[in-house]
Simulated assay, not measured.
Amino acid sequence: MQTPIDMTVILLTYVFFAVYAGPQLMANRKPLRLNAAMIIYNLSMVLFNAYIVYEFLMSGWATTFTWRCDLIDLSSTPQSLRMVRVAWMFYISKYIELLDTVFFVLRKKQNQITFLHVFHHSVMPWSWWWGVALTPAGGMGSFHAMVNSAVHVIMYFYYGLSAAGPRFQKYLWWKKHMTAIQLIQFILVSVHITQYYFMEKCDYQFPLWIHLIWMYGVFFFVLFSHFWVQAYIRGKRLPASKSTKEMNGPTQDAVTVVANGVHVGNGHVPQHSNGKIFMAKVKEI
C-alpha cells in the first residue's frame, strides 16, 4: 500500500499474460488437468469471501450503519479499524482472483478470457487500491464490496462443483442463474448508491467515490446484460465452431467424461487423449 506503482505493474503483467504470453506459452502444449487444484482454490475462495462478508457486517452493516448516508469513520475505534482490515482483505482477494485467468490459460480455455473477464479482473484491484489507501473505512462506499463478496461465495461454490467432475454436473442446473445473480448485484449497488443524489443532506467525505461506484454499477450492468443476451438469448455462449474446438476442445457442457477417461460427445464420438473432435471425427494432434 506504499505506492500504486507495484500494483499497476502486477496488473499490467496480468493483462499481458492473459491476452498474449499465456496463450503463446500453451499454444503447442496440451491443456493441463488441474481439477484438484481448482477444487481446493474454489472452496478456499468460498470460505474467504464468506469471512469477508461476515466482517463487513460486523464492521457496521449489521451493527451501526443505517444503509443510507453512512459516513467514513475517521476514528481509531475497534469497529473502524475492523472496517479498515476487512477493506484490505477484500482488496487482496482481487489479486487472488487473478488465478481464475491463470487456470483458464493453463487449461487452454482461451474462449473464456473475454474483454469483460480481463477488464473486470484488472480494473477492480486497481480502483480498490485507491479506495483502501485514501478511505479504508469507506462507510456507504463499502456496500458494493460486501455485496460482491456475497456473490462470490455463490460463484466459487458453483465453480468448485463444476471442477469436481461429471458426477456433480446434475447439480449445476443453475448455471444460467449465475449471470442473473451478477446482474442483481449491480442493481443493488446502483440503487443503494443512487440514494445519495436524492438525500436532502449527506456529508459523505469523498463524494467522488459515490460517483465512481454509481458509474461502476451501471457500466458493469450493461456489460453483463450484453453477455446475458449473447449467451442465453442469442445462444452464442461457447459456440461449437471450428475455431473454438480446435483451440480449446469441447466444453464440459457438450461432453460427458466416462470412467475410463474417454470423452463422449453428443454424437457419441470418442475423443481420446491425443485427439480433438473436428467435424464429428477425431483429429489427431
Rank of each mutant, 00 (worst) to 15 (best):
K245Q: 14
S142W: 08
D73F: 07
A18G: 02
L172P: 06
F278D: 14
W209T: 10
F103V: 04
M1E: 14
M1R: 10
L188W: 00
V53R: 01
K175D: 02
V46W: 04
V282H: 08
L106C: 11
Y91S: 04
M146D: 07
K236G: 14
L99S: 05
I39Y: 11
M279K: 14
I5S: 05
V229D: 02
V46M: 00
H120R: 05
L71Q: 08
T251Y: 06
D253T: 08
F219V: 11
L74H: 15
H263G: 15
S149H: 02
I5V: 10
L172A: 02
Y14A: 04
D73L: 09
A133P: 07
S241D: 11
Y158K: 01
F198P: 12
A280R: 13
M38R: 04
L71V: 12
F168E: 01
K242V: 12
M45N: 13
S122W: 09
V257M: 15
T135R: 07
V229F: 06
V191Q: 06
W129L: 05
P166A: 10
T179R: 05
G217R: 00
S122K: 11
L34P: 04
I193Y: 04
M279L: 13
L74F: 15
Y197T: 03
I187K: 05
A164P: 03
V222K: 09
I187P: 06
K109Y: 10
K170W: 07
F65N: 07
D6H: 10
F206Q: 06
M38N: 04
P250K: 10
F219N: 09
I72F: 05
S162E: 01
N148P: 02
I210N: 09
T135H: 09
V257R: 12
V229Y: 09
S122E: 08
K281Q: 14
V19C: 14
Y41P: 09
H152T: 00
S80C: 06
Y197D: 05
N28S: 09
T135Y: 13
V257W: 14
S273G: 14
F103A: 05
